[in-house]
């Protein structure tokens, strides 16, 4: 059973089409790097899979569970660390993790705060923390949730080298336990080091996907540019002339 299987997944926001038929299969144990320019639909794809949005068309399944029909079950399998940390300003990191534990029905691992480098600020309010520490808290929360499908949206933002190791550790932990990871980032070099598969999304279309082997940042740039390029004149003329 695939960890994630999307078939012709589409999403419109009013007149704007954010995703145009994305078909992708991520097997358990795989880590996917999702790249594309701003507005390519990366965050939309992650939010659809996480059940934060409903698809306009097509299907998405997480370990066989449909994201629309079986959304509560999907949410037990998926965790998202998004671009926004989603933290309550007036709560402390310790309180956040206690809350996440109660909401997910999982105990707080005793070493979780230390793992995230938050032990010394565990009882300070989030509003007093730096952006990097807030990102670490988001990663700690995701680790507590122990997802089988981990969705990371720009996870390296504001993180120092140690914080970036946390992302790597999370990705390794999830994939080694038979889960899968989809990582959307503009930091392609770091992403390539973590992922074993790559998908290139441009203008809401998946223009390339496959194993990472042989993939470089330069090649990714070429793929993104090729996907963003307008169709050849002859093809466009042929299409409109029919």
């Amino acid at each position: 059973m695939p960890a994630l299987e999307t078939v012709e997944l589409r999403r419109r926001f009013g007149p704007h089409t954010a995703l145009t038929g994305v078909t992708l299969t991520a097997l358990p144990g795989s880590a996917w790097l999702l790249v594309g320019p701003n507005g390519a639909g990366k965050t939309t794809l992650l939010r659809l899979v996480a059940t934060a949005l409903r698809p306009t068309g097509g299907t998405a399944r997480v370990f066989g569970r449909d994201v629309v029909r079986d959304a509560p079950a999907v949410r037990t399998l998926v965790a998202v660390a998004g671009a926004a940390d989603g933290a309550y300003e007036a709560l402390t990191p310790r309180e956040h993790l206690t809350f996440a534990a109660a909401m997910s029905g999982r105990p707080v691992p005793p070493d979780l705060l230390a793992w995230a480098g938050l032990a010394r600020v565990a009882d300070r309010r989030v509003e007093e923390l730096s952006q990097g520490l807030r990102r670490r808290l988001a990663l700690a929360r995701v680790r507590l949730l122990a997802p089988r499908l981990l969705l990371l949206d720009e996870p390296f933002t504001a993180l120092d080298a140690e914080g970036q190791h946390l992302v790597e550790d999370l990705v390794r932990t999830v994939t080694e336990r038979g889960g899968a990871v989809v990582l959307a980032t503009h930091e392609w070099e770091r992403g390539l080091r973590l992922a074993d598969h790559v998908a290139v999304l441009v203008g809401g279309r998946l223009v390339a996907q496959g194993p990472r082997q042989g993939m470089t940042v330069e090649r990714l740039r070429t793929l993104v540019a090729a996907g963003a390029a307008p169709p050849p004149v002859s093809a466009a003329a042929g299409g409109s002339g029919q």
């Binding site: 078909t23 299969t25 097997l27 795989s30 074993d196 598969h197 790559v198 290139v200 223009v207 390339a208 996907q209 496959g210 194993p211 990472r212 082997q213 042989g214 993939m215 793929l223 090729a226 996907g227």
Partner: peptide, 17 residues
């Protein structure tokens, strides 16, 4: 899976998957 290549011009990558 890692042994396979990635080619955006053909559906081979998807077929491989």
């Amino acid at each position: 899976v890692a042994q396979r290549g990635m080619d955006p011009r053909t559906p081979s990558a998807l077929e491989t998957g």
